[in-house]
Design a protein around this nucleic acid. Structure first.
Lengths: 337, 337
DNA sequence: CTGAAAGCGCTAACAC
DNA sequence: GTGTTAGCGCTTTCAG
């Protein structure tokens, strides 16, 4: 099949002819240059309107050496990424901000088998910048991106490089606040199920827990790694239970893991919220989907996404931007603790 | 800040020089033309490798009048779209297939305020084709897209036009099978909560329900519209309850609405799965997230996404493609019915 | 099978 | 302020 050329795709040349000016003048008004006489401006505007002129992106990009496109890199298996409501919010936030700019967002799902391809794309000068939505440790793939274009990461990268930008939430403070909440409720025998300890978020939340416990002079009842997955949460809970630790509250470092913990608790006839207080982290949609509704730490994912996009836009526009941004968290009280 | 030009971005000219051939020959091997001598082929390949050459997308697109990009259009508020695990699967499926091709996927979130902009982009010849992920009735916006590039819809569009393509699941049959399942279990007083009735999926599932009930000579206990949202499901359930209808089973046309129905049922002390059988539709992640796990109708969302992408790729490549594709559904038995 | 030549539509110095 | 002039890096006839 022959691809039909876009109907009536007017060129800058035609607009110029109709407005009775040169190409350059049209280019100037399209690009918002001030150095155009009111008369010319008006004429060009009308011509653009009449002809429904839309600048050709490829031509523009070729001449200006800018693409006006950014890449949203998802270094993750599609199902893992899209199954997590936390990422959904991030993407939604990014999309909102990019959508209001004149940038286009290219979604690059860089699962293992297509990393080389994705890298080639990124290095081929097809985008002006990149946002990396999620982050595995030891991802040399990612480091090679920031050799080429500015990058902003969601969450503090495992290895922070001076030229990178990132937007994170205050995980230490969140973990601390969660623990303080439990303590304030009179709990003294508190266990925790941590997130993956090779990820900054996992490390930091645990740190917050430890800090607050130490500050209150209370010894943790148990500490187990739940790897940020539902199954991992259940297994961790089981280990705590099997070890015979006595506890009346548990701080679980993600909502998804908390769901797993609920199941493990119930298998032993322990009712979450009644027999033992459970505290989550994320405030994703699962926290209200489970019963009893999960008391948790809200992290502003949508805002995080929005922020990531604005930072990149700032950098691309040459505006000053903070390399690190930390967003606040907040305890959300529901029924489980 | 000055945008650093991509380091070492080799041009076709440099490759040609290094391989001792002309630009044209390099172009031929890059584009897989057969008319190249083995010697030249080899020389060019090596040069490309040495120089890490990646063709400049803009230049290529400008010369060939093809963009090698497709748009993923999301005519929906971001939160509504990303909050629904069903859409997540669709996008994942699309992403997989597009990722394996040499096309790039531009995500266009076309919420109301940026429709004009999105349309301008689409009409500006920036993409070769479009995929419309979700679909509101009365969306003239969308129709204007298919004036310009081939588009494939997720789900049968409200108004099917000859030049459009779509991939849908067999909603009528799914609704029928769900109802048959309930009937086979001995239920005779069956209510239904339908999806939005201005959407084909809502209409069709209800149709399937009605067909099967009629075929069995059983009168529906109640029919209420739940608008495909969680809240809508809860409200519909409430209306059924308040009307005093007697029923021992309810077919809910989406998992999300079923979650709402669970809540409404429980408020009245009615336990889903025990006191009344509940059947969902989607088999999205919420069906196993809620308790009791939801017996539901699986629609192959991932496959649907994949299919949508392949159809578009076929069309763009000039391969024959079916304008309508209907994927099968299947009842998944769990605990609620 | 290969090279020369002519653009694709736009931006960006550079003169005027 | 405005027009002229070169390209940006690639594909694509057209000769040979």
């Amino acid at each position: 099949m022959e691809l039909a050329p876009v109907r009536g795709a007017a060129t800058i040349e035609e607009v110029a002819a109709r407005a009775g000016v040169s190409r350059s003048t049209v280019s100037r008004v399209v690009n918002g240059s001030t150095a155009v006489s009111p008369a010319a401006l008006e004429a060009v505007r009308r011509a653009i309107d009449d002809l429904q002129y839309v600048p050709n992106r490829a031509a523009r990009s070729l001449a200006s050496r800018q693409t006006r496109a950014i890449a949203l890199v998802i270094p993750e298996q599609t199902d893992r990424f899209f199954g997590d409501p936390f990422f959904a919010s991030i993407v939604a936030g990014i999309g909102e901000v990019i959508g209001e700019s004149d940038y286009i967002m290219n979604m690059l799902i860089a699962s293992d088998d297509v990393r080389a391809k994705a890298l080639g794309y990124l290095r081929g000068g097809s985008v002006d910048g990149a946002i990396v939505a999620s982050h595995h440790t030891s991802d040399t793939f990612l480091e090679r991106i920031s050799d080429v274009v500015p990058v902003v990461y969601g969450g503090r990268p495992a290895r922070v490089r001076a030229e990178d930008y990132y937007v994170d939430v205050d995980n230490v403070e969140g973990g601390r606040a969660a623990t303080a909440y439990l303590l304030a409720r009179g709990h003294r025998r508190i266990a925790t199920i941590s997130g993956a300890l090779d990820m900054p978020a996992g490390i930091d939340r645990l740190q917050g827990f430890r800090d607050e416990m130490a500050a209150s002079g209370v010894e943790p009842a148990a500490v187990e790694d739940g790897d940020f997955t539902e199954m991992g949460g259940a297994l961790a809970m089981n280990r705590i239970l099997s070890a015979g630790a006595e506890f009346d509250a548990v701080f679980v470092a993600s909502d998804l893991m908390a769901r797993g913990a609920y199941a493990a608790l119930r298998e032993r006839g322990i009712e979450p919220g009644r027999d033992v207080a459970v505290m989550g982290f994320d405030d994703s949609s699962v926290s209200t989907a489970i019963t009893p509704a999960l008391t948790t730490v809200r992290q502003p994912s949508l805002a995080q996404g929005r922020h990531m996009a604005s930072v990149l836009l700032d950098v691309l526009a040459g505006r000053p931007a903070a390399h690190a941004t930390i967003l606040p968290t907040e305890v959300v009280e529901r029924s489980s603790a």
